[in-house]
Design a protein around this nucleic acid. Structure first.
Lengths: 136, 136
DNA sequence: GCGCTTTTGACAATCATTACCATTATCGGT
DNA sequence: ACCGATAATGGTAATGATTGTCAAAAGCGC
């Protein structure tokens, strides 16, 4: 078995990685597709999805699934980190939590799980938005 | 503003809470809708979604959003906890992490965020599935 | 019981993501 | 550099969960 699926290098994949490298924040697949179009790169939406999926599997990019919408992808900056997202204005702050990492590993190991990954998002209301809400 | 929306007690809402009280694990909205139908309760799918949403907002139930599918809802057992999910067989183990809770609070506070909530899911391969994969 | 307002629920609409599949591009060998 | 096998692409259709719509049916306060 073990279908040695030969992976090929295509300009489309390179293009996707390029946009991801250039834009800092999180972007939806459709966003990235539009950005590629703007750059003059002709990449199909389907391909964008496929590539993003592949990159995510390979651990090269971050995926965030905010409640109520599309998946957001981002170039994985060095190291693993999590996000603190304002549920009102969407502002995102990166936070690192080595403690969480090791905690997750430990917990998983205790139950015999291997090949661990985890997703953690923190939602809250940022200072600005909290202030605004008072004036409603 | 502050539209004093008067919340009413309806048998449909009661029915949804009842199924949630009776079934232990996670279920999708459509699942619960089917369960209600089996019980002879006549509740529309739309209403199930709405009720679930409301309960989730009120913090009465847990919501899990597994990668690649529908939302899963569950009666919120006492206390906050997280889930260790086998990405192969779907087996779910509950884990508690007070450390994570306080870490999240601290991090959020440090950035001026208030009204914090967070989602954390750990994915891995359980012992059984790991063993099976070796025989592929 | 009477209104007023919230809820319900059948069905349509939305919308991100996936499946299809014929066409095209890549890669390793010649 | 050409060829042939096959992975990758991309337009479009399909999928499927969730949400919107709105007339009809229930709550709740009086």
């Amino acid at each position: 078995m073990t279908e040695e699926t030969v992976v090929r290098n295509t300009k489309q994949r390179a293009a996707v990685r390029d946009v991801l490298a250039d834009c800092e924040g999180f972007h939806s697949a459709q966003d990235l597709h539009a950005l590629l179009r703007d750059r003059g790169e002709r990449v199909g939406l389907t391909t964008v999805y496929r590539t993003l999926q592949g990159l995510a599997d390979a651990g090269e990019i971050d995926v965030m699934r905010p409640p109520g919408g599309e998946h957001l992808y981002r170039r994985c900056s060095r190291g693993h980190h999590h996000h603190l997202v304002c549920r009102s204005c969407g502002r995102t702050v990166e936070v690192e939590g080595p403690a969480v990492e090791s905690w997750a590993e430990k917990m998983a190991g205790r139950h015999g799980f291997v090949d661990i990954s985890h997703t953690l998002e923190i939602f809250g209301t940022c200072t600005d938005c909290a202030a605004k809400q008072k004036t409603d």
